[in-house]
Design a protein around this nucleic acid. Sequence first.
DNA 1: CGTGTTGTGAGTCAAGATGTCTCACAAAGG
DNA 2: CCTTTGTGAGACATCTTGACTCACAACACG
Lengths: 196, 196
Amino acid sequence: MDQRSTRDEPLDPRSIKSRTAMLEAARSLLASEGWDAITHARVAETAGVGRATAYRHWPTVNELALEAASIEIKSVSTLVTGDLRTDLLAELRALRTALVDRGLKHLMVSVMERAIHDPEFRKIRHQLNQRGGENLRNLLRDAVKRGDLQSTIDLEEIVSLLVGPIIYEVVLHDQTTSDKRLVRLVDFVLRGCQPD
Amino acid sequence: MDQRSTRDEPLDPRSIKSRTAMLEAARSLLASEGWDAITHARVAETAGVGRATAYRHWPTVNELALEAASIEIKSVSTLVTGDLRTDLLAELRALRTALVDRGLKHLMVSVMERAIHDPEFRKIRHQLNQRGGENLRNLLRDAVKRGDLQSTIDLEEIVSLLVGPIIYEVVLHDQTTSDKRLVRLVDFVLRGCQPD
DNA sequence: CGTGTTGTGAGTCAAGATGTCTCACAAAGG
DNA sequence: CCTTTGTGAGACATCTTGACTCACAACACG
């Protein structure tokens, strides 16, 4: 999204090296132990750099935490067949995989918690929402254009109907949301969108 | 759920007084500033008690945090009319109100975050889920008995379809989920449950 | 009402965490 | 080659954490 060259310019290879090492360490710590593990000392130790170096790059822990949580989530572009049901299903599968298999669930919940009290983290949460539902929104918009979907229904609400239950089951119930469940979910929503 | 008299017996009024004062302080701090504010020092200071007293009641911060998060959520029993649509709507309104107006949203997200790494908090999360969806499950079960709802559909999935989107919108998008939206949600789900 | 018990507040204390600073050094770039 | 710059190691003052003591007042009980 943003190239890290507008404000600070860490063109020195040494700076880049220690910086990336610390960020990687911070993300690992965040995923495995949560926010409490994000301290200058722990991160520096884990990254194998000096403690003072961590302070140089991020004067406060919050700045460090913020940057550690700012992960560029690559929206795995599932191949679009044109059949809405198939494409939605593929997209939801990708979402589930990202949440469960990769640590996105942990990250999301962590960011959610910080977002309650920190406006900066609200921005990150917003980006996660935006990126996470991007493909889904595109699919639905194209389907409306094609006429496969009623245009009277707000797309954001359909996204909510599809994503909401998955988030709910994965995050609040530690369920994996089986493949059959995903199929039922998609069919249910598509059925509800059908004109009578 | 459990009467706090099985293990420890703080029958001394002084003990009860300082204990409740600290728990109230801890909950207030948790809601307003998050987990970082939950320390023996801050809680004791806020409650107006000595720092050592906090250590006496809860040797570790985690025990304190755990008890502070263990709120007995009173499921506001909405009056049941017998009409499924009306009753579901009332129930979802109550859920939304609890999440948004009262601090349940904050508490829930805080507990979710801790639950990732702490099994004790997973129990609390489970209780929140259980209690939060209790009325809803009862409504659906009765509707199936009455024949107002197809019995082939898993009730837990319907709960997920109803609650998921609300959680998603409230927690991840800071939306309030308008009343119209709730109506559309209920109608959508009921429509999807109709036999063809 | 008196008396022993018990939780408390204030304070002390050691150990550890936190943030700042200095300095020798080596990698970077001219 | 030589200056600049980020680094690691360490010193340092300060704050936090958890354990401890002790005088005191509220409590339970006779």
